[in-house]
């Protein structure tokens, strides 16, 4: 994937424009991150590569998960912002759908920087794909630097605990860690809560094969009805909530912060409840 030939990239870009509908091309051309003569920004984000690489994800977005979008205007067009979402579905398609939504459905588009687990850079192809699409290892230093540069970061405070939770616990949020909140307070960035409904049903985990996960150094190895966590075509509902601006010091005790974390977690929970009430069926 790192070495997609120019012809393949060009064809993928055409596919992105076709799936995105009229005006997509003009909108995506407004995406002008800093880039050097080799087409990348200092983190390795390559906008041209990303427009090509999202084609299959955009197909999933339009044709497979048929994403129902609410409140995309709550994502500010510029300035630092932290998007906070629930996490589910064994494989992070929820992250991909949120990012595609912000690229395709917003005018001008907004390229999100999703924070990935620290073991992702050890995965072949995935590591390169992530970097060229603007994703980055979720260290506090990386977040600070990106927020200081007025970028939009996408955080899943539940982490893999949320991603790989068993099916019987679907739509029950795992406790949010306070890290994202400290960063948001430090850089006085607004927080946009995001709720994703549908990802829980894409790959229901029956159980977690822990010994194999340990052997492969994966965070989990869920066994799903399709054996491997290949997603089923559940219908996605992605809801963006109103930006939350919290006041306070990032150096407060965890207990103090927990109240603020609870505000954000409550907002995400509310979005999930709305999405669940809205949907008529898991698959259509």
């Amino acid at each position: 994937m790192a070495e997609l030939s120019d012809a393949v990239k060009e064809r993928l870009r055409e596919w992105t424009y076709a799936l995105g509908g009229p005006g997509t091309r003009a909108r995506l051309e407004k995406l002008t991150p800093p880039r050097n003569e080799y087409g990348v920004d200092p983190y390795g984000f390559d906008a041209e590569y990303a427009v090509a690489a999202i084609a299959p994800l955009l197909w999933l977005y339009r044709k497979y998960f048929r994403v129902q979008l609410t409140g995309i205007d709550h994502v500010p067009s510029e300035g630092r912002v932290v998007l906070v979402s629930n996490h589910s579905g064994q494989l992070p398609f929820d992250a991909a759908m949120i990012e595609v939504a912000c690229l395709i459905e917003k005018d001008p588009p907004r390229a999100l920087r999703a924070l990935v687990e620290r073991w992702v850079p050890t995965l072949p192809f995935v590591s390169t794909f992530m970097a060229r699409c603007g994703q980055i290892v979720g260290t506090p230093e990386n977040c600070r630097r990106l927020l200081a540069a007025d970028e939009a970061i996408l955080v899943f405070p539940e982490g893999v605990r949320g991603l790989n939770k068993p099916f019987r616990e679907r739509y029950r949020l795992r406790p949010f860690g306070p890290g994202f909140l400290r960063l948001a307070l430090e850089s006085s960035a607004p927080i946009v809560p995001v709720g994703v409904v549908g990802a829980e049903e894409q790959a229901p985990a029956l159980f977690d094969l822990k010994p194999l996960a340990r052997l492969l150094a994966f965070p989990a190895f869920p066994i799903t009805p399709t054996i491997l966590p290949f997603p089923l075509p559940s219908r996605y509902h992605v809801l963006f909530g109103e930006p939350i601006r919290l006041q306070g010091s990032p150096d407060e005790d965890d207990q103090e912060l927990e109240q603020k974390v609870a505000v954000v977690q409550g907002a995400v929970r509310e979005l999930l409840a709305r999405g669940l009430a809205e949907r008529e069926h898991v698959f259509w």
């Binding site: 200092p42 983190y43 850079p121 990386n142």
Partner: peptide
């Protein structure tokens, strides 16, 4: 290292 931040101080 895989877990390195992008710009090490």
């Amino acid at each position: 290292r895989p877990e390195n931040s992008s710009f090490l101080p």
